[in-house]
């Protein structure tokens, strides 16, 4: 038949939904094709060839069969072969804090890649990196999540500033902070509703955005908590509908 094509890509399983009696629709964030939804036939049967490979958090190498010339088209593609690269799920569900943080990451990655089939390689690399870090347990889960959220905002064009004034650019540290205005603000640029976080919190958020784990790991819990609050407000402001899973994060 004309127009059928095979694709191969690797990706992280973001979500699975039941379809019919034994199938599932798998949503993946792939390296080359951005977000992709595909059908895994028979995956819910115990004797399925896919087994447990297509569970959320799994990093997999997938072969897709598409009825068109594109991977994302009028019909959902089929997953025909799946190989595990890294099954992050096992390490993640062993710890409830990790699980809730990782779930919020998947939802964030899904929401920042609304246009299926459009490459989102930076978002993909961020997700892989964050899952890997989370699975090692090297850093506190809420910090790994906040770093992921900040960098996701950044690669999608919403980079907040935690040092220089977001309006006039005067070098930091700056005392005021406004989610709506893009982050730190100097006294001249402050807008109504600006908050005054503790200076340590802004240092932490800057460190999370730049990947300075030494500074981030040394932060006191109360500043980490304040930082999480600001990050959550920032993400919710930029994503039209809020993130559902964020309120369940175990901090």
């Amino acid at each position: 038949m004309a127009g059928m094509s095979l694709f191969r890509d690797d990706g992280v399983v973001l979500r699975t939904q039941k379809l019919g009696e034994a199938d599932r629709i798998i949503t993946l964030l792939t390296r080359q094709h951005g977000r992709v939804r595909a059908v895994a036939r028979g995956v819910r049967r115990t004797k399925s060839k896919f087994g447990a490979r297509l569970e959320p958090f799994s990093h997999v190498d997938v072969q897709f069969f598409s009825r068109g010339e594109e991977l994302v088209g009028r019909h959902l593609a089929l997953c025909t072969q799946v190989e595990t690269i890294t099954p992050y799920g096992g390490r993640i569900v062993d710890d409830y804090g990790r699980y809730t943080a990782a779930t919020a990451m998947l939802e964030t990655a899904e929401r920042f890649t609304e246009n299926e089939g459009e490459p989102a390689v930076q978002q993909y690399l961020l997700l892989i990196g964050a899952l890997r870090t989370l699975a090692t347990g090297e850093h506190d889960s809420p910090l790994v999540l906040d770093a992921f959220l900040l960098r996701s905002l950044s690669v999608n064009g919403y980079a907040p500033s935690f040092g220089d004034c977001a309006k006039c650019g005067i070098p930091g540290p700056n005392r005021f902070f406004s989610v709506q205005t893009g982050g730190a603000l100097c006294p001249d640029c402050r807008v109504p509703g600006s908050v005054v976080p503790s200076p340590e919190t802004l240092v932490l958020l800057g460190a999370l955005l730049s990947g300075d784990w030494e500074t981030a790991d040394a932060t006191e819990p109360r500043h980490a908590r304040e930082g999480s609050g600001l990050v959550a407000a920032y993400v919710q402001w930029h994503l039209e509908r809020g993130l559902r899973s964020l309120r369940y994060v175990d901090r």
Binding site: A52, E55, T84
Partner: peptide, 10 residues
């Protein structure tokens, strides 16, 4: 031989 690696790992 037919078990997937996730299940076999468990």
């Amino acid at each position: 031989e037919y078990a997937d690696e996730v299940t076999l790992g468990r």
